[in-house]
């Protein structure tokens, strides 16, 4: 039920506007700063309106190598995208298969497998970073996409979520499918996956953001800037060393780095809101 009172309406709108302003203010600052020259930004007053550069700074960072990094932001974004997509897709595929095995197949050590997966929840990459680094380095995967993706690709959380979902699927559905001549693969692809597309969409968003925002791991294993990700490079750009920090470049890069996650959320949100509204089960 909802309260309908004019005064309350006004108050809630005011609160909403205030929070929007609070969240958008930094973005606004970044946007306006990115349209100034460096000289203008070092006059002391933060400009809260657009400067004369327009989108030139954006074009420049996308096209030309940035500062000490020696690679363009396009390259950085591409690296980030490969890593985030690799991690998100990998996690989902592996989680679907692992949960499928644990829920629908009877084999020796099934529960052991499940608990082993579950326990890895307690071992995020930050905890196991030294041994993981050793392994990746021994495999010769430093400075490679595989090295960026593989150590982060298994997800106990996602496996657990899919397991919980599979447990709610009525067993008769599996039996009906077996009678209808669907083998294990067909059952997975024709029945389970379509039923879990909402979960897949939600997890994809979460896992994409997780991958996109990785900092420590990419920082460790990429010495070659050709494999650096956008998030890592932002930090490097912002600590200027001897020179003055080129804030207009940093801000342009930051805004560009914001776009893919926003795009993913906006696209995927439609799917899982739809999924939540007309639940298939």
């Amino acid at each position: 039920m909802r309260y309908r009172r004019p005064g309350l309406d006004l108050l809630s709108h005011a609160l909403l506007l205030l929070s929007i302003a609070m969240f958008l203010f930094p973005v606004w600052m970044a946007l306006t700063a990115a349209t100034h020259t460096r000289a203008e930004l070092y006059t002391g007053i933060a400009p809260l309106w657009f400067g004369g550069e327009g989108i030139d700074n954006f074009i420049a960072v996308l096209r030309d190598p940035v500062g000490r990094l020696g690679v363009s932001v396009s390259q950085l974004l591409f690296n980030s995208l490969v890593m985030a997509l690799g991690i998100a897709v990998g996690k989902i595929v592996i989680a679907i298969l692992a949960a499928y095995a644990v829920v629908f197949f009877r084999f020796r050590g099934r529960m052991l497998c499940f608990w082993a997966i579950f326990v890895t929840l307690m071992l995020p990459v930050e905890v196991r970073i030294m041994p993981t680094y050793q392994v990746v380095s021994d495999l010769g995967l430093l400075n490679s996409y595989a090295g960026l993706i593989l150590p982060l690709i298994a997800s106990a959380t996602a496996t657990f979520l899919f397991r919980q979902f599979y447990l709610t699927v009525p067993p008769e559905l599996l039996e009906a499918a077996r009678v209808d001549g669907a083998g294990p693969w067909k059952f997975l692809c024709d029945i389970l996956l379509p039923l879990s597309k909402t979960n897949v969409a939600a997890l994809f968003v979460i896992m994409f953001l997780y991958g996109w925002n990785q900092y420590l791991w990419p920082l460790m294993i990429t010495t070659d800037t050709a494999y650096t990700t956008a998030v890592v490079s932002l930090k490097q750009m912002a600590t200027g060393g001897d020179n003055l920090v080129p804030w207009q470049t940093v801000m342009a890069t930051a805004l560009l780095a914001l776009l893919p996650p926003v795009a993913v959320i906006v696209t995927m949100q439609r799917y899982f809101v739809k999924g939540l509204v007309d639940s298939e089960k």
């Binding site: 009525p170 008769e172 559905l173 039996e175 009906a176 499918a177 077996r178 009678v179 209808d180 001549g181 669907a182 024709d190 029945i191 379509p194 039923l195 298939e280 089960k281």
Partner: peptide, 29 residues
Amino acid sequence: EPAERDIAMVFQNYALYPHMSVAENMAYA
């Protein structure tokens, strides 16, 4: 396997595939 026995089963709770249309449900086998 069930499919190789060439039998068809009608379940108490119907066990229709929720994401398929009636036509697709019927055509699946």
